[in-house]
């Protein structure tokens, strides 16, 4: 595919000699929403950490916008436009909501447009505006997730990777989060989404990659997945 923004090829990774990822290959075309689907503990998070540079791959290549980024430091990779919203939010707990958002726009290109962009974030996520001077650690689970998303959006990357954005949230908050994801997709942003739950993304994603024990075992569109009960049952327990 010529218009792939992010390409992962033959990627292996692991911790202390234990392989977590085995020969992962997929790509993310510009403007699409791609999902990595699969049960917890099967390497999806490690995969995102590899792409964002927090974990070094042991083998394979990651190409972004035509240039290799595997093995680069995380802080370099984000400055190229690969932004991750990590699992568990990873907020700065002893900073205000506003300061957390400002950290999102830490890089030069983003900080110049911060004042203007933060207003957009506040319209998208009005809860944050109410809480702007509150410490991040005092937020509720849903608010934390909103803040993590807002902070990631302010970095203004070309691709946004979301690691389990619905994890641990009440259904009503999950609905809100997916409204936001739909909005982002409408704006034409490139998204890479890690999910455990198939139901939310089946109508949303252009491509779904099923990850099981560190490898991609199946891939295809949402409709194909729905019409493939065998795959659903084997890998996602129905």
């Amino acid at each position: 595919m010529a218009d792939a923004l992010l390409q992962v090829e033959g990627l292996h990774a692991g911790y202390e000699g234990q392989n977590v990822l085995n020969d992962i290959t997929f790509d993310v075309p510009k403007g699409q929403l791609i999902t990595l689907l699969g049960p917890n503990g099967h390497g999806k998070t490690t995969l995102l950490r590899c792409i964002s540079g927090l974990v070094k791959p042991t083998k394979g290549t990651i190409t972004f916008d035509g240039q290799r980024i595997d093995g680069m430091e995380a802080e370099k990779i984000v400055s190229r436009g690969v932004v991750m919203i990590p699992q568990g939010d990873m907020l700065f707990p002893e900073m205000s909501v506003y300061d957390n958002l400002r950290m999102g726009a830490y890089l030069k290109q983003a900080s110049a447009k911060f004042e203007q962009n933060v207003e957009e974030i506040y319209t998208l996520l009005p809860r944050l505006k109410e809480r702007t001077s509150q410490m991040a650690r005092t937020l509720s689970g849903g608010e934390r997730r909103m803040l993590a998303i807002g902070r990631g959006l302010l970095a203004g990357g070309d691709i946004l990777m979301l690691d389990e954005p619905s994890l641990g949230l009440a259904p009503i908050v999950i609905d809100q989060i997916y409204e936001i994801i739909k909005d982002l997709k409408k704006q034409g942003r490139t998204l890479l989404l890690v999910e455990e739950n198939a139901s939310r993304i089946i109508d949303l994603a252009e491509q779904i990659h099923l990850v099981d024990t560190g490898t991609i075992v199946w891939h295809g569109g949402g409709k194909e997945l729905e019409s493939n009960p065998q795959v659903l049952e084997t890998y996602l327990g129905g």
Binding site: S52, G53, L54, E73, A74, E75, V78, S79, V83, M84, P86, M90, L91, F92, M103, G104, Y106, L107, R151, A155
Partner: peptide, 9 residues
Amino acid sequence: DAARLMGVR
């Protein structure tokens, strides 16, 4: 780690 993800060297 979060700071690195924001681009802090």
